[in-house]
């Protein structure tokens, strides 16, 4: 059975959206109950009992040294060394999360590493929280509940809203240049049919095409999704790796990791991410090496008196 019954890659868009929008820091337990290295395993056991928790990070002034779990305590009781200092028996080979990562990464870690909890560090490598599967399930329930209310609130406003809401997903494979552009083409068609101005359509289509090409050229494969409602178009590219080691560098105009073959096709000019950002009203990129990259671009649509005339 899965620890968390949500697939961070293939779920309805509203869930994917949520998993991406929520950061680890929004979901983790904080402050963390910690022990120091010299504490005995018995002290740790009492911490667990009194706080009803099953894992205690060992940290001093924010620096993480290890983590002790209930299994460590049980082994100590069996082995008769419960009064030993925790530092001699704690787990020091840890997988940690960063507080700014999207929740989707956290969820995939539970599946990948089979730990019950992950210490969470900030950019300065200080322990700022702990993420257990219970934290994830509880916050997802709350957020889904909120989302459900938001969706429901939208329903009765008018039927046209529903007609004008379109969501479509495309699977994009590595080096599949032949199918690159299918999504951009589809979006362009939908926007044209709804009489949006050509300049706006071009912005959306260019951002979408660059996102598709990035998946084709740089990722191991991924999904491209677009969601359109009367207020905006949202483009979301989620891939399965390899991840970008330095996002800031990748954003620099002209920086590219494309090989000569890709370049000979006219791709890999190091302009793609900037082209997306320039055309979007809102742009966000998240990446973790070994996990993957998520790019989101939102383009606002003209509304009210600026909205295009609808053809009957």
């Amino acid at each position: 059975m899965k620890t968390i019954p949500v697939n961070p890659e293939q779920s309805p868009l509203v869930i994917l959206d949520l998993l991406f929008k929520l950061k680890i820091k929004d979901v983790m337990s904080s402050p963390v109950i910690t022990a120091v290295r010299k504490d005995s395993l018995r002290t740790v056991q009492h911490l667990m009992r009194d706080n009803r928790i099953s894992g205690v990070p060992v940290a001093e002034r924010g620096r993480l040294f290890g983590i002790a779990s209930i299994d460590d305590i049980i082994r100590a009781l069996e082995g008769g060394y419960i009064d030993d200092p925790v530092e001699r028996h704690m787990t020091t080979q840890m997988v940690v999360l960063e507080d700014d990562m999207p929740l989707s990464f956290g969820i995939s870690y539970f599946e990948k590493f089979k730990f019950g909890r992950f210490p969470v560090l900030n950019k300065e490598n200080r322990l700022v929280g702990i993420l257990s599967s219970r934290d994830v399930s509880a916050s997802l329930l709350v957020e889904l509940h909120n989302e459900y209310h938001k969706l429901e609130a939208k329903l009765p406003v008018s039927a046209i809203r529903d007609v004008n809401t379109v969501t479509r997903g495309f699977r994009v494979e590595r080096y599949d240049f032949e199918n690159a552009g299918k999504a951009a083409h589809a979006i362009k068609k939908i926007l044209s049919e709804q009489n949006y101005p050509p300049a706006l359509i071009r912005r959306v289509a260019v951002a979408a095409y660059e996102m598709e090409i990035n998946l084709v050229v740089h990722s191991l494969g991924g999904t491209f999704t677009f969601h359109m409602d009367p207020e905006k178009v949202e483009l979301l590219a989620v891939d399965e790796g390899p991840g970008i080691p330095n996002v800031e560098q990748a954003m620099q105009e002209g920086f590219t990791t494309a090989n000569e073959w890709i370049k000979s096709l006219g791709f890999g000019a190091g302009m793609g991410l900037n082209n997306i950002r320039r055309n979007a009203d809102d742009f966000d990129i998240q990446s973790a090496v070994g996990r993957g990259t998520t790019v989101r671009a939102t383009i606002l649509l003209p509304t009210g008196k600026d909205a295009p005339p609808q053809t009957p």
Binding site: F177, E178, A180, G181, A184, H185, K188, P198, R202, A205, V206, Y209, I213, L265, G266, F267
Partner: peptide
């Protein structure tokens, strides 16, 4: 190649 037509089309 094919993709040139795609970007040309997007750009008008």
């Amino acid at each position: 190649h094919l993709n040139t037509v795609a970007v040309a089309s997007l750009a008008g």
